[in-house]
Each structure stands twice: as C-alpha cells, then as structure tokens.
C-alpha cells in the first residue's frame, strides 16, 4: 500500500522537475569538476611551459613586432617581437607562485588569530578581533601598493603585501567556528582527560575549522589573482622582462586600438585563472555543505 503510493508519486515529481529545469545537465558537469579541470590545465601549462612554448619568452625580435596572430605566432607578438603564446604560458608561473605564497601566509595566520580569539575569549578575543577589524577596513590594493613601494617591487614583496590585507576573513571565520564548538561535549571530554593548551587547539579544534578555511582560500584565490595582476599592471609586481600577465596587459594597453591582441591575450589568461579558482572554490563549498544533495 505504502509502496504503491510512493510509486505513483514518483513519476509525477520527476516530470515536474524536468519541466522546471528545462533540460538536465549530465551529472559530471558541475561547478567543482569544471573548476578542477581548469585549475589542472592551468597548473599543467605552467609546469610544462618550457616544453609547450614554441619560442623563448624573452627573445626579442624587432622585425616581428606587433604581428597579428598567425600559424607561427598563435597569439601574435608584442612590441618587442616576443611570442605572446610563450609569454602567456610562462606568465602563469609567477602568478601561481605568488598566489600560493599568499595562501601559505594568510591561512595559518588567520587560523591562529581566529582560533585563539574564539578559544580564549575575554581580552584576547577583544584585542585580536579589533586588530582584525582594523586590517579588514583597509582598502587592500591601496595598502598593497603602499607596502610594495616601501619594500620594493618583486614576487615575495608582492605576496607579503597582498597577504597583509587578506588574512582577516580567515580569522573571522575561524573565530566563529571555534566559538560554536568551544562548549561542545567532546572538547569538555578532552579537557577532562587532561588534554589542554596547544594540544587541544591543534589536535581537536583545528581539524574542525580547517575544511571551511580551505574552501574560503579557494574562493579567495580568484580575487588574489586579480590583485596580483593589478600590482603587475601598475608596475609594482614582478619586474620586466619576466613575463607576468598584469604587466603584459599594461604594455599592451598602449597599442590597444591597433593591436588589441597584445592586451587581450594576457587579459584572457587572467580571466581564465581567476574563473578557474572561483569555480573550484564554489564547487568545494557546495560539496562541503551538508545540505548538498549529491
């Protein structure tokens, strides 16, 4: 009886769903997989740049300057006659290195600050969270520019400058999550068993706070790539002649009306990288969400 009523209901539900969504995407085509494939492509291109690039990215050839895309130079050449395809491939490297440096710097700092604030409470929390609020209220690219102009341009300094303004979101999130588990029975039980201090924080609290920090890092990466390109565009990133997408757009912008591809090619590379990490982060968040139905 129950069975038959369930069966009669099922086709109806299916048909309404089909009408509502119009058509169904294949199950493997979701945000996470698309993002993952794009990130893997990006990493592969960066790693294999010396094998894949047809020309030396820094080889200048003034006769071939500002050539339109053709069979020899797939993406054309820039104003020094350098092959844009090779430069775009090599340009993925500093971007990815800078982005991973920023993540390596910000995630641990944010987690330490947030977990300490949430766990110790009281004055520790007030001081740490007000510091976080202050840094959060700073305009990140402007501060990064100021820091780079003090420290001097370069990969490491660019990463430091971007990291300085991007840890607070991790701290906030870690604090909220720590607060929600601080009074949990299993932490009380651990304390009763003599587990205290850093052992409790690293062994018991961190594993519960880390997954959402990873999701947030993946989501932030898109923004960090944009900021890194912004630094390069303003001449505060990696210095020429090293290929870097931001500075490539900047040099292409001088000839943008006549030779649009010189700026457009690295611009699309930035778009691709930023989109890849955004999709990956979005997909990760969906996957980690307990309400996710797949």
């Amino acid at each position: 009886m129950i069975d038959s009523s369930l069966q009669s209901k099922d086709p109806l539900e299916k048909s309404t769903k089909r009408i509502a969504s119009g058509f169904r995407l294949p199950y493997w085509l979701n945000t996470f997989n698309v993002g993952l494939v794009m990130v893997v492509i990006l990493l592969g291109l960066a790693l294999l740049a010396p094998l894949l690039s047809p020309f030396d990215p820094n080889l200048q050839n003034i006769q071939d300057r500002l050539l339109a895309p053709d069979a020899q130079h797939w993406f054309g050449t820039d104003r020094f006659g350098r092959d844009l395809f090779s430069r775009v491939l090599y340009g993925a490297r500093p971007t990815l290195i800078l982005v991973s440096l920023v993540v390596i710097l910000t995630v641990p700092i944010g987690l330490i600050v947030g977990i300490c604030a949430g766990y110790f409470g009281g004055w520790t929390e007030r001081v740490l969270m007000r510091m976080t609020d202050i840094v959060m209220s700073l305009p990140s690219l402007v501060i990064a520019l100021a820091l780079v102009s003090i420290l001097g341009p370069g990969l490491m300094n660019g990463a430091l400058a971007l990291a300085f303004t991007s840890w607070p979101s991790f701290a906030r999130q870690a604090r909220t999550e720590t607060l929600s588990i601080r009074r949990s029975d299993y932490l009380s039980a651990a304390k009763m068993q003599g587990i205290t201090g850093w052992r409790l924080i690293i062994g018991h609290i961190l594993p519960l706070v880390l997954p959402s920090a990873i999701v947030r890092a993946a989501l932030n990466l898109g923004g960090i790539i944009l900021a890194a390109a912004g630094l390069g565009f303003l001449g505060m990133g990696i210095q020429p002649p090293t290929a870097e997408w931001g500075s490539m757009v900047s040099s292409g912008s001088r000839v943008i009306f006549d030779q649009w591809w010189v700026a457009a090619v690295p611009g699309f590379a930035i778009l691709f990288a930023s989109l890849a990490f955004n999709l990956l982060g979005d997909g990760l968040r969906d996957k980690m969400d307990p309400r996710h139905d797949k």
């Binding site: 949990s184 029975d185 299993y186 009380s188 039980a189 651990a190 009763m192 068993q193 003599g194 587990i195 052992r199 062994g203 018991h204 594993p207 519960l208």
Partner: peptide, 27 residues
C-alpha cells in the same frame, strides 16, 4: 571522569576511536 548525556556529541567527529581513546593514555 564523566560520561556525557548525548553520545552523539561527546565523541570528536574527526577522530577515530583509536586516537580518541589512546591520546590521554599517551599523555
């Protein structure tokens, strides 16, 4: 030592039983 009310909330969700039980003994 104490046994808590809610068995669903008193064990660390990310620790296997071996770790949960042996850590205090190691200490």
């Amino acid at each position: 030592q104490m046994v808590f009310q809610d068995p669903y909330a008193s064990l660390h969700p990310k620790h296997r039983l071996r770790r949960a039980l042996s850590e205090p003994l190691k200490l």
